[in-house]
Amino acid sequence: MSFKQHKVRVGISIGDFNGIGPEIIMKSLKDKAITDFFTPIIFGSGKLFTYQKNIFKLQQLNFNYITDATQAQSDKINMVNLTKENVNVEMGVPTEESTRMAIDSLEAATNALIKGDLDVLVTAPINKDVMMKHGFAHAGHTGYLEEKFGKKGLMFLVTNDLKVAVSTHHIPISQVAESISKEKIKKQIKMLNQCLVEDFQIPRPKIAVLGLNPHAGDGGVIGTEEIEIIEPAINELFDNGVLTFGPFPADSFFQPNKYKNYDAVLAMYHDQGLAPFKTIAYEEGVNYTAGLPFIRTSPDHGVAYDIAGKNVANEQSFSEALFMAVKIFKNRQEYNDLMTNRMRPRRNSANNGVDEDLPDENGH
Results as ranks from 00 to 15, higher is better:
residue 196 L to E: 00
residue 214 P to I: 15
residue 240 N to A: 15
residue 237 L to Q: 01
residue 238 F to E: 11
residue 261 N to F: 06
residue 194 Q to F: 07
residue 209 V to F: 01
residue 211 G to D: 00
residue 236 E to D: 15
residue 211 G to V: 07
residue 278 K to Y: 08
residue 243 L to D: 13
residue 238 F to N: 12
residue 218 D to S: 09
residue 223 G to Q: 13
residue 237 L to M: 08
residue 261 N to T: 14
residue 254 F to T: 04
residue 213 N to P: 09
residue 248 F to M: 08
residue 199 D to R: 02
residue 260 K to F: 15
residue 268 M to Q: 09
residue 212 L to P: 02
residue 230 I to P: 06
residue 205 P to T: 08
residue 262 Y to S: 12
residue 240 N to L: 15
residue 195 C to Q: 14
residue 194 Q to M: 08
residue 196 L to K: 07
residue 218 D to H: 06
residue 272 Q to L: 07
residue 210 L to S: 02
residue 204 R to P: 04
residue 262 Y to F: 14
residue 210 L to R: 01
residue 242 V to P: 01
residue 201 Q to K: 10
residue 266 L to Y: 04
residue 253 F to E: 05
residue 209 V to L: 02
residue 204 R to I: 06
residue 252 S to K: 13
residue 212 L to I: 08
residue 196 L to T: 03
residue 233 A to V: 00
residue 245 F to Y: 13
residue 251 D to T: 00
residue 202 I to P: 02
residue 249 P to F: 11
residue 199 D to I: 12
residue 269 Y to D: 02
residue 273 G to F: 05
residue 272 Q to G: 04
residue 261 N to L: 08
residue 259 Y to Q: 12
residue 236 E to T: 11
residue 228 E to G: 12
residue 226 E to L: 05
residue 254 F to W: 14
residue 265 V to I: 13
residue 215 H to S: 08
residue 236 E to Y: 10
residue 276 P to Y: 07
residue 241 G to A: 04
residue 248 F to E: 03
residue 247 P to N: 10
residue 226 E to C: 01
residue 233 A to M: 01
residue 272 Q to H: 01
residue 230 I to R: 01
residue 231 E to G: 07
residue 208 A to S: 09
residue 215 H to A: 12
residue 197 V to G: 03
residue 228 E to N: 13
residue 237 L to Y: 02
residue 213 N to R: 05
residue 251 D to A: 03
residue 199 D to V: 05
residue 213 N to G: 03
residue 243 L to V: 05
residue 271 D to G: 03
residue 205 P to D: 14
residue 241 G to L: 03
residue 221 V to F: 14
residue 241 G to D: 03
residue 249 P to H: 11
residue 256 P to A: 05
residue 200 F to Q: 04
